[in-house]
């Protein structure tokens, strides 16, 4: 990580202006007007800088997490180290682990990811190819769809009928992931690259394969996108996303009549009802309550 530290060290000498942050998350020139601006500012002495971050590790690699958290709470994280810090915040690594232990865990996880990715690639060759799909490749009953005018690249099609139920369910999600990938954070220069879009697609596709209970639900792309941008290594990005999903996956659980996030909305509704009954009544009146009551005139 010397290169990263070197770049960050150089940038830290400048003031915490918008230009400096723009280096990390550049916005496409044609989108400058519409893109939302970050309110984050680097604040000397408050923001967790690369120097302070590295100083928080003792010789064998234990991290003084309390010190780090205090800094983050005061002034956020310098973008140059955000990916590394997030790995700890999301729980990929315990603060008491050593450098050596973390290297081993990282190695093991990268191998595990490549095994899963190979399983996926075996079913759908376009996985890991730097390309991705936005139109369905199989029917509900597992028959390959071949006559699509937009999927004319080699290796995109599925050649044989698929009978395994898990495989069918997973393959039916792939074009949906693609449709959302092309619409994810597209004001950023990062996603002008098809390779980067495919990286997001691969991570989401492999996750959907591994966590088949949840699969893929629209909205997961927005959670995954920062990991894919911040972590250069795709497997590392996957594991960060996996940790985030450990906390969030129940929100995405869908049944025939409900979706997980409704439980939270219901709690929110109760809170509003207590804190601001007038607002609660208004929301219910315009049909925005969790269980809206409609007046029927038949």
């Amino acid at each position: 990580m010397v290169g990263c530290e070197g770049l960050a060290g150089l940038l830290c000498k400048k003031s915490g202006g918008e230009e400096e942050l723009g280096v990390f998350y550049p916005i496409r020139p044609e989108c400058q007007e519409n893109a939302s601006r970050t309110r984050f500012r680097l604040r000397a002495g408050k923001t967790l800088s690369p120097r302070k971050w590295h100083a928080a590790f003792c010789e064998d690699g234990h991290l003084d997490i309390a010190k780090v958290l205090t800094r983050i709470q005061r002034g956020g994280i310098h973008p140059a180290i955000k990916g590394l810090v997030w790995e700890f915040l999301l729980g990929c690594y315990g603060p008491n682990s050593t450098f050596e232990e973390r290297n081993q865990i990282r190695q093991r996880r990268r191998e595990q990811y490549s095994i899963w990715k190979a399983e996926c690639k075996n079913l759908v060759p376009v996985i890991g190819s730097g390309k991705f799909i936005t139109t369905p490749i199989i029917t509900d009953d597992g028959q390959p769809i071949t006559d699509s005018s937009t999927n004319n690249d080699q290796g995109v099609h599925v050649n044989n009928a698929v009978s395994d139920k898990k495989a069918i369910q997973w393959m039916l999600l792939l074009h949906q992931i693609g449709l959302d990938v092309v619409r994810t954070d597209r004001t950023l220069v990062f996603y002008e690259s098809e390779t980067n879009q495919a990286k997001l697609w691969d991570v989401l596709a492999v996750y959907a394969w591994v966590d088949s209970d949840i699969g893929y639900v629209q909205g997961m792309n927005d959670i995954c996108s920062p990991m894919v941008i911040l972590l250069e290594n795709e497997a590392d990005a996957f594991w960060c996303f996996d940790r985030a999903m450990k906390r969030l996956r129940e929100n995405f659980r869908c049944s025939a009549s409900s979706i997980g996030v409704q439980a939270q909305l219901s709690t929110l509704s109760q809170v509003i009802k207590t804190v601001d009954p007038k607002l609660h009544k208004h929301l219910a009146d315009v049909g925005l309550g969790v269980q809206p009551k409609y007046v029927l005139h038949i």
């Binding site: 949906q176 639900v217 629209q218 409900s258 409704q262 049909g287 409609y294």
Partner: peptide
Amino acid sequence: QERYRAITSAYYRG
């Protein structure tokens, strides 16, 4: 997405 049908069907009411 089809998975969102669980909640969107409620919005057909009215």
